[in-house]
């Protein structure tokens, strides 16, 4: 009973999620169908994967944040698509896209760790730069006409579960393990708690910072591939504003923006809440203009509840 209570205290956002689900299932019987739920989860996975990387960056402290994820989605999608169309086989295309994501993360890490540029500013700049590079690379036009073996990544199922959901689950489990069980995880939380102390305790904090941005680049690239596969084409405008959703998921999950406190499970719940809100508003045919307002207000309410609870 006690551990149940502490679980609830830790994951208050779960309560918000349950309330949302209950309301939606009553108002919209269509919500609780298997096909709709799988659809929701597939949609969520794109944001959830980015949010996992974002969560790690924010947890690691030192003002960590990665605003470049949206641009990483666009450029890695474009690279995977164009390479694939030029006849290179799929696994190599995927590896190249992931490599580029990691490289951009590496650049972000260098800028913040070695050049001491504030993460907000550094990643804002790389966001703008790589969006531009994507436009140049694609000449501003979508790369379409991807065949079934590529789009399968986004649309097929294994054992009835959509592939993007499986990928999300795997990445989630890996990062959960890293954060809770390994030295790297301990160091991430340590740096978020007190950077000076962590460095003096013999941790290469610079290397740690670079590493978390590489992780974020990798997760964003993974999402980039999935987005491209789902639509069947790579748009230079893909991923616009994705950083906001990812940050919202992390915050909803109860992670402290200054780092050191927060959990991966919380972030997942945050991502699911956002997805459920989107889906619910769609099912209710709410005008998209209003959807954004409603979504913002719900996030605010959830964060507010969380804060009240902590006091």
């Amino acid at each position: 009973m006690n551990s149940f209570k502490s679980f609830i205290v830790k994951y208050k956002s779960l309560v918000v999620l349950i309330i949302l689900v209950v309301i939606l299932s009553i108002a919209m019987p269509r919500f609780l169908t298997i096909s709709n739920l799988l659809n929701v989860l597939t949609q969520i996975s794109i944001n959830a994967i980015i949010a996992i990387g974002m969560c790690i960056v924010i947890l690691s402290g030192s003002g960590g944040i990665d605003l470049s994820v949206g641009s990483v989605v666009a450029i890695t999608g474009a690279i995977a698509a164009s390479l694939y169309k030029s006849g290179i086989n799929l696994p190599v295309c995927i590896l190249c896209a992931l490599g580029v994501g990691a490289l951009i993360g590496f650049a972000n890490g260098l800028l913040t760790a070695k050049q001491k540029i504030q993460p907000f500013i550094a990643t804002l700049c790389t966001q703008i730069i790589f969006r531009g590079i994507t436009y140049v690379y694609t000449d501003g036009k979508p790369i379409s006409g991807l065949d079934d073996s590529f789009t399968a990544i986004g649309n097929n199922r294994v054992l009835g579960i959509p592939i993007p959901v499986i990928i999300t689950l795997i990445i989630f489990l890996i990062t959960l393990y890293i954060l809770n069980e390994t030295v790297l995880g301990r160091h991430i939380y340590a740096n978020g708690g007190n950077e000076d102390c962590t460095r003096l305790s013999g941790v290469s904090t610079d290397r740690l910072k670079i590493l978390v941005y590489i992780i974020s680049g990798l997760t964003a690239a993974t999402s980039g591939i999935i987005v491209t596969a789902r639509i069947g084409s790579a748009s230079p405008n893909a991923g616009l504003g994705y950083e906001t959703d990812a940050i919202a998921a992390v915050v909803l999950g109860g992670t402290r923006m200054s780092g050191g406190e927060g959990t991966m499970l919380g972030t997942m719940i945050g991502a699911v809440i956002l997805g459920v809100i989107d889906n619910g508003l769609n099912l209710m045919n709410v005008n998209p203009f209003y959807q954004s307002i409603v979504k913002g207000v719900i996030i605010l309410l959830a964060v507010f509840l969380d804060k009240k609870n902590k006091e």
């Binding site: 030295v183 301990r186 160091h187 939380y189 340590a190 708690g193 007190n194 000076d196 102390c197 962590t198 003096l200 305790s201 013999g202 941790v203 050191g260 406190e261």
Partner: peptide
């Protein structure tokens, strides 16, 4: 406060930080 401890951390984890390996 600034360089010795991660104050929101458990005592035990503070102790093992330099020697985690």
């Amino acid at each position: 406060k600034k360089e010795g401890l991660i104050s929101n951390w458990p005592v035990g984890e503070n102790m093992t930080l330099p020697n985690l390996k």
